[in-house]
Write a protein that binds this DNA or RNA. Structure first.
Lengths: 149, 149
DNA sequence: CCCTAGTCTTGACTAGTTCAAGAAAGCAGG
DNA sequence: CCTGCTTTCTTGAACTAGTCAAGACTAGGG
């Protein structure tokens, strides 16, 4: 389903052992960007039978530490992962269904990274999360009101 | 310790019943901005004996819904609360110790609220979190290296 | 003062994640 | 190709933060 050799190359480049579990995890995050751990676990098990949940947690942590994955966690959401790690892009999150989409930086390469007074903190990253309503939910809201409790 | 009448007034203005628990919760968040629920629970119990954790959770939810509190949750952190709700300010979070400080908007009243392409999402808020190292941790890091594992 | 809706207490329960010990597997060197 | 060391995976228990639900209590309008 996924080009395994390419993924294998990525793992070796990051000095990580190539295991079926890791390959499957990385492939899963590629095909399911912004998915949560449980969804990824299912996807991985569809590829490699009998993978333990701990292996998936471990792989996700390792791959994140190696810079192959990026971990995102909007308030009130479980942890989600994506493979776009190089660019400092941001996210829009739907308040209603929790879906996430990528948003490129609006103002140049690293906007908003100029806080007025950071109280002596040494800032290395500015994370921006846009909150709103996704197309599907805003349509559902206006057309079929009173459906949700 | 806190001006209870003032807090009472705030509660009534928000059409909420005035209970000892709520007053204590609101006072606790005032004196301990950015505190997590557990810290607040302890603070509340110091004022009013035997308060249940559920009452604190309920109060925090109710007060947040009424706009008297703002709930923040940086990735990897538990939920925290603060009383500054009117202005759209942001936060700096220490990667090392997790401490949080307020940061006022850098560019005008609502910066960064102009995402380039929001994929059809209707955006109503832009949340900015600055990640870095707090003064205490950066000092500890440079002077007493090798202390932490 | 009484009534009722809203709030609090008590205690069980859940989801998501981490911890720990031993078995299995990757891969460098011979 | 085989060996052995080290990392990774499996298994299964444990933990934390938070939620659910039933009944007792109480704020505040009448």
């Amino acid at each position: 389903m996924e080009p395994a050799p390419e993924i294998e190359r990525l793992l070796r480049a990051a000095d990580l052992r190539v295991t079926r579990q890791r390959v499957a995890v990385l492939a899963a995050v590629r095909t399911l960007p912004h998915a949560d751990t449980d969804t990824l676990l299912r996807a991985v098990r569809a590829e490699v039978d009998g993978v333990s949940h701990q292996a998936v947690y471990d792989s996700l942590h390792t791959l994140t530490a190696a810079g192959l994955l990026r971990r995102i966690q909007p308030a009130g959401s479980v942890v989600r992962y994506e493979t776009r790690t190089d660019d400092n892009h941001h996210h829009v999150v739907c308040r209603s269904c929790g879906s996430v989409a990528d948003v490129d930086c609006a103002v140049g390469p690293a906007p908003c990274l100029t806080a007025s007074d950071t109280h002596g903190f040494v800032v290395d990253e500015a994370e921006v999360i846009f909150w709103g309503t996704c197309p599907a939910c805003s349509t559902a809201d206006t057309t079929t009101r009173e459906v949700a409790p």
